[in-house]
């Protein structure tokens, strides 16, 4: 039996059916990310596990026990919210001690636990500061420390980094992952940022409109998207209908499924290369956008626009409107379903 089991979870807000029969298992000690666009139900699923939302149908098991109707107070779950969740009238240390006091922990031991948790997030010197005196990033670290100091069975992170600026976010992602591994704590992380999900997760559960779209390791989800939605959401895939694909490569393939092509698998060159097991076709550069170390071209091929990524090297930049040859390995053209089954 898995550590956490969701069985056929259904949840509606009024006429809005948010979760449509979710079945999901989470293993002990793993970090599972719930990934999806806003409104897909990922936060709601997390809050159902926490007990902050009632489940209308289905059941949730934690550590072998049915907790579907257990009060949130008794579930032993730690949670970090999006932002502003620290108690503003208490110092950092008091915030951490709040949960321990309820556990009736001895003063000395409590002190030890609090400073250990603060040390873990690197904020020992801020123990006596008030939340209002901390930066957004520091506040989220404290929130994390507060969530783990009570030694909960599960740690829930509800988009904890979405209000933090990009650079700091990268650091915190690594740090959270490090702490999670160190404590070996079962963690469910909610985000809408696919890069963040890639960096942090053992497994990713991709959600769309209240259903699980795909479940798997970051690599498998990235390289083998099963549905049109997964391909579009995860890797900026070029997704096209079979007849569009035929038009692109200029031959008839009789494919039955939509085709997904990752931008970085398309190679661009000035001349035709005549490679084996490749489709090769001519196109015209519409525009190019630098994206970090990658240059993304939008190329018009027979009236179909596709994107292709190349590493940003100065000697291989193609001008707008110039004619280029594109080559694409056949095995990189993936079949994807219209929707999840």
């Amino acid at each position: 039996m898995a550590y956490i089991e969701f069985k056929n979870i259904n949840k509606s807000f009024g006429s809005n059916h948010v979760l449509k029969g979710i079945d999901l298992n989470v293993e002990k000690g793993e970090l599972l990310t719930l990934l999806g666009p806003s409104g897909c139900g990922k936060s709601t699923l997390l809050r159902c596990l926490a007990g902050l939302e009632e489940v209308q149908e289905g059941s949730i098991y934690l550590d072998g026990k049915d907790i579907t109707h257990t009060d949130a107070r008794l579930r032993q779950i730690g949670m970090v919210f999006q932002q502003y969740s620290l108690f503003p009238n208490m110092t950092v240390a008091q915030n951490l001690a709040f949960g321990l006091k309820i556990k009736k922990m001895a003063k000395e031991e409590m002190k030890k636990e609090v400073s250990a948790a603060l040390k873990m997030v690197g904020l020992e010197e801020k123990a006596n500061a008030y939340p209002g005196q901390l930066s957004g990033g520091q506040q989220q670290r404290v929130a994390l420390a507060r969530a783990i100091v009570t030694k909960p069975k599960v740690l829930l992170l509800d988009e904890p980094l979405s209000a933090i600026d990009a650079k700091l976010r990268k650091n915190l992602q690594i740090e959270i992952r490090k702490i999670q591994k160190e404590l070996n704590i079962t963690t469910i992380f909610v985000t809408h940022d696919q890069d963040e999900a890639m960096v942090m997760s053992d497994r990713i559960c991709l959600l769309n409109e209240g259903r699980i779209e795909q479940l798997g390791t970051p690599v498998s989800i990235y390289t083998e998207p099963k549905t049109k939605f997964a391909a579009g959401f995860i890797g900026h895939y070029n997704v096209m209908k079979p007849e569009e694909f035929d038009k692109l490569i200029g031959e008839k393939c009789n494919r039955t499924h939509a085709v997904a092509i990752r931008p970085e698998t398309i190679a661009i060159s000035k001349e035709k290369k005549n490679l084996e097991n490749c489709y090769e076709f001519k196109g015209k550069v519409v525009e190019s956008l630098p994206r970090g170390n990658v240059l993304r071209y939008t190329i018009d091929v027979n009236g179909i626009e596709i994107s292709a990524d190349t590493l940003f090297r100065s000697f291989s930049i193609f001008e707008d409107q110039s004619e280029v040859w594109l080559s694409l390995e056949k095995r990189n053209c993936l079949d994807v379903e219209e929707t999840a089954v």
């Binding site: 926490a50 007990g51 902050l52 949130a72 107070r73 008794l74 579930r75 779950i77 730690g78 949670m79 919210f81 999006q82 932002q83 502003y84 969740s85 108690f87 709040f98 949960g99 309820i102 556990k103 507060r146 009570t150």
Partner: peptide, 10 residues
């Protein structure tokens, strides 16, 4: 968030 955080801490 404060109410919920406090509730989860029992």
């Amino acid at each position: 968030e404060w109410k919920e955080a406090a509730r989860l801490m029992n």
